[in-house]
Simulated scan of single mutants.
Amino acid sequence: MEHRGVTVWFTGLSGAGKTTISQQIAKRLKKAGCKLEVLDGDIVRTNLTKGLGFSKEDRDENIRRIGFVSHLLTRNGVIVLVSAISPYREIRQEVRERVGDFVEVFANAPLAECEKRDVKGLYKRARAGEIKGFTGIDDPYEAPESPEVECRTDLEELKESVEKVLAKLTELGYLSA
């Protein structure tokens, strides 16, 4: 499969399905022979942005750093799949402008559904007051106003979400058979 460099930025609440969708897309694109990198927010925080906290300033810096790496890879013809909560619109827009070839995917699931899926127990700990400034509980999540793709992960199957993203990348000229 031929392709152009692009950053596909998955945003949404913790547990909304960002990583799950991006992992499935990564499998498909690797199988098709695409140059690909996956930047998962949890993994990035333990390596590239270690030491940053969860204040608004630190969250913005975390996203800026991910955006910088995404930009370098994208301009070198790599498809970059970023899975990061990235709760604030303004910093997502800043990264979009820096990268240029940028497709925003909103993994959209209601907070109650994300809490049901809480495999790490983070929402439970946030509700108990053990985690302060948790996105969706006591820190805001600013949903995208016009993402290129919206995956309603509470209403659609994983395969449907994956196909929507791949179809949009093809429509925008980033992928071709």
Rank of each mutant, 00 (worst) to 15 (best):
Glu115Arg: 10
Glu171Phe: 14
Thr20Leu: 11
Phe102Ile: 02
Gly67Pro: 13
Thr170Met: 10
Asp118Pro: 15
Asn76Gly: 10
Gly12Met: 10
Asn62Cys: 04
Ala112Leu: 00
Asn62Pro: 01
Lys31Leu: 11
Phe54Cys: 09
Glu150Asp: 02
Leu155Ile: 09
Val6Tyr: 09
Pro140Cys: 00
Glu97Arg: 03
Asp138Cys: 05
Val95Gly: 01
Glu157Trp: 08
Pro144Tyr: 03
Asp139His: 11
Pro140Met: 00
Glu150Cys: 07
Lys168Tyr: 09
Glu171Val: 11
Ala84Met: 09
Asp58Trp: 14
Gln24Ile: 00
Val149Lys: 01
Ile21Cys: 12
Glu160Pro: 03
Cys114His: 02
Asp40Asn: 02
Arg45Thr: 00
Gly121Lys: 13
Asp139Leu: 02
Arg28Ala: 13
Ser70Ala: 15
Phe106Ser: 04
Leu81Tyr: 06
Asn47Ser: 08
Asp40Ser: 08
Gly33Phe: 03
Thr19Cys: 04
Pro110His: 00
Ser83Leu: 04
Ile63His: 05
Thr74Arg: 07
Gly67Phe: 01
Gly133Thr: 09
Ile25Arg: 03
Lys30Trp: 07
Ile66Phe: 05
Phe102Ser: 02
Lys164Glu: 08
Val119Leu: 14
Arg125Met: 10
Ile21Ala: 10
Asp101Asn: 13
Arg65His: 01
Arg117Gly: 11
Asn47Glu: 02
Ala16Asn: 10
Asn76Tyr: 02
Ser14Lys: 12
Lys132Glu: 10
Ser86Phe: 07
Glu150Tyr: 01
Gly136Pro: 14
Arg28Glu: 13
Gly12Leu: 10
Val78Arg: 00
Glu94Thr: 05
Glu104Cys: 04
Ala109Gln: 04
Ala109Leu: 03
Lys30Leu: 10
Gly129Asp: 05
Arg59Gly: 13
Ile63Met: 05
Val44Gly: 01
Gly136Cys: 07
Arg59Asn: 12
Asp154Val: 03
Glu142Phe: 02
Glu156Pro: 05
Leu29Gly: 07
Val80Met: 01
Leu73Ala: 11
Gln23Asp: 14
Ile66Pro: 06
Val78Pro: 01
Lys35Phe: 02
Lys124Gly: 12
Thr49Ile: 02
Glu97Met: 02
Val165Glu: 13
Gly100His: 03
Lys50Met: 11
Lys120Ile: 08
Val165Asp: 15
Phe10Pro: 15
Thr19Lys: 10
Asp60Thr: 09
Pro87Trp: 05
Lys50Cys: 06
Arg92Ala: 00
Val103Leu: 14
Gly5Thr: 05
Ser83Ala: 15
Lys116Trp: 04
Phe68Lys: 11
His3Arg: 06
Thr49Phe: 00
Glu163Thr: 15
Arg75Gly: 01
Gln24Glu: 15
Phe106Cys: 06
Glu130Asp: 12
Glu94Ala: 07
Arg45Pro: 00
Lys56Leu: 13
Ile43Phe: 01
Cys151Ile: 15
Gly136Lys: 13
Arg59Val: 11
Lys27Ala: 10
Asp60Ile: 06
Ile66Gln: 04
Leu52Trp: 09
Asp58Ile: 08
Pro144Arg: 08
Val82Glu: 05
Ala143Lys: 09
Glu2Trp: 06
Glu156Gly: 03
Phe10Gln: 13
Arg125Tyr: 00
Ala32Gln: 15
Gln93Met: 05
Gly12Phe: 08
Lys124Asp: 07
Glu163Pro: 15
